[in-house]
Design a protein around this nucleic acid. Sequence first.
DNA 1: TAATTTTTGATTTACGTACATCAAATTTTC
DNA 2: GAAAATTTGATGTACGTAAATCAAAAATTA
Lengths: 366, 366
Amino acid sequence: MRPTVHDIAAAAGVSLATVDRVLNQRAGVRTVTREKVEQAIERIGYVRDVAAANLAKSRVYPFIFILPSGDNSFMRGLEAQVRAAIGRSPVERTAISIVTVPAFNVEALVAALDAARAASPAGVAVVAVDSPDVIAAVDRLRAARIPVVTLVSDLAGSLRDHFAGVDNIAAGRTAASLMGRFLGGRSGPVAVLAGSMLVRDHRDRLEGFRAVMNESFPAHALLPVLEGQDDPALAERLVGAAFAASPEIAGVYSLGAGNRGLIAALKRRQSGQPVCVIAHELTQHTRAALNDGLIDAVLNQDGGHEVRSAIRVLKAKADGVAVIGAQERIRLDIFLKDNLPFDEGSETDLPFEQAGNQEPGQGRAD
Amino acid sequence: MRPTVHDIAAAAGVSLATVDRVLNQRAGVRTVTREKVEQAIERIGYVRDVAAANLAKSRVYPFIFILPSGDNSFMRGLEAQVRAAIGRSPVERTAISIVTVPAFNVEALVAALDAARAASPAGVAVVAVDSPDVIAAVDRLRAARIPVVTLVSDLAGSLRDHFAGVDNIAAGRTAASLMGRFLGGRSGPVAVLAGSMLVRDHRDRLEGFRAVMNESFPAHALLPVLEGQDDPALAERLVGAAFAASPEIAGVYSLGAGNRGLIAALKRRQSGQPVCVIAHELTQHTRAALNDGLIDAVLNQDGGHEVRSAIRVLKAKADGVAVIGAQERIRLDIFLKDNLPFDEGSETDLPFEQAGNQEPGQGRAD
DNA sequence: TAATTTTTGATTTACGTACATCAAATTTTC
DNA sequence: GAAAATTTGATGTACGTAAATCAAAAATTA
């Protein structure tokens, strides 16, 4: 049988009350006694029964999720996943609130992080914009002993506890490797469509992509990066202009969002050789384009996994216990039209379709 | 606040004892009363606090894992993952025992399943061999109200509760799609190395591979399937013979284990055009070959995920509660040398290296 | 040494559920 | 309508931990 607090008391030769004082770091225990108890815990291999402890404490974990607002399929899917987690709150003892801030907006994000700190939750998950001010705001949360997990896009140099997202450098490298092999003998330059260089995930993907293209496929020149602000309309204009300027384009790597615009531009393209297209994030639009042969491969991160992983890690950090590392590694999914998962419908789709059009630059769209 | 049993009692106008009788389906409740209570449960939206219930019951979940024995890196890695789960048993309230049976052996597997049934555990996970006798044995377990999860290889037509493994038809299709694209303009037939057509996973992969090769890349003929029994030595002989007989081979799809033998044959191959190789399961051997450029892509299933998922599902089935479907879908990982995960060392490696050589056909090796 | 402070022990209640016991109320059977 | 059987209620204990109270013991200070 697993040892209990009573066994600690017996082993240490102290009372239950003293064991409790040590376990829950309450005052009024002499150092010698505390050490006696800690040694007993070590000796008999006691591990606190978290379920029983949570029951006794009527513990709930108040978490805050900070996500970009705007018309971005992936981000709205992520929000839907957080809402699904909210639906499981009674069972999981969480109390999750969602805060949305304009995409790529440092000041708004800092304000949201500081507001979160004022609410003193049990943990914060945030889709980070890479900036010194954001790093400072995250570090203020950590200084207030509030666990922080970055979601989707990391914040290198900050004191965040964990990153729940894919290895974006590897993602970029993989995209390049697939691009180079899929192009085979064909020649021609490759265009890159990004959202913004303000977010770490996009920068990392570009870095990985550039590295492998230069190393392994130097015959294909890289055209200057198109920054589409994750806005479909802008993306469509930029890609269309690139096709017009360089009809010999052999491939396109879309490492951000706004794929609706990219797909529109591909459909409008009349002439020229076939283009190899690799994009990120499986949405209704990229899925359809993959099936139609407009897109050759989609690299995907599972937002549901990321959200559930973030919650597990935040809980563990709040309780001060270890996590199963391998379980929390977010995988990069590679989808060809041959291994598309069955469409789960509402699960990854938008929770609500927004009809009206969005101002450009306000969202990480699609 | 979340409703409790007391709230049910109040809402239904009955005593706590009666609510308990209904909740735990004990006898001695009139149908009218039972319905009154069930309606109250529905009305106030009660969900049992599983943590508290488990605490009260001092619940442990005795599970039995039935795995193939023999010198097969993937299977030994799987076993290591089960052992890791055993290490978490005190926390997860499980009591897991491992049973190994010779690979591809129907009688031994049936005996193990029947022995498991006699032990009346809370659930059984099994790497299935596809056979009517095995189906019958699994159905006997289900008839005894014991939840069954198939692991890695499914058992279509049985009453198993769940399959914790990848979609192997999609895996085969993906392999073909990658193979066809990687080959580009090159011509020549493609060889297929399987383990045994007795297991569903191998048959499914072959089916998917054949379908896409015939549909999309009919220029590449498929050579007769080599059945290597997942044995490295046999695989090496078969592949070597195939190279000798057909020097113009353009690609090899290894859909089973025994990749050590395949790699040896590839290294020995002197002449001929370069061969595009796609294999299954990331082990120390396939990882090294991928890095060396001997293998072009590895399709992988994460044994750790499969084991943890199997345990979660078995628990849920034992408790009669729902699972998060998306969380339990096992993903097909596609690894190129560019997105190899950091080597976790002991985590996916063999728990112990076996030096001695194994009789052929006794294991699903490598 | 006495007075004071600090530390420790003993005990109780609570969390939400399971399970057992015994008495009381209700229904069924003859 | 009485006896028997069944159903329901009331109550207590348990699971492992948290948290509180108050008394007793030990240590510290004057």
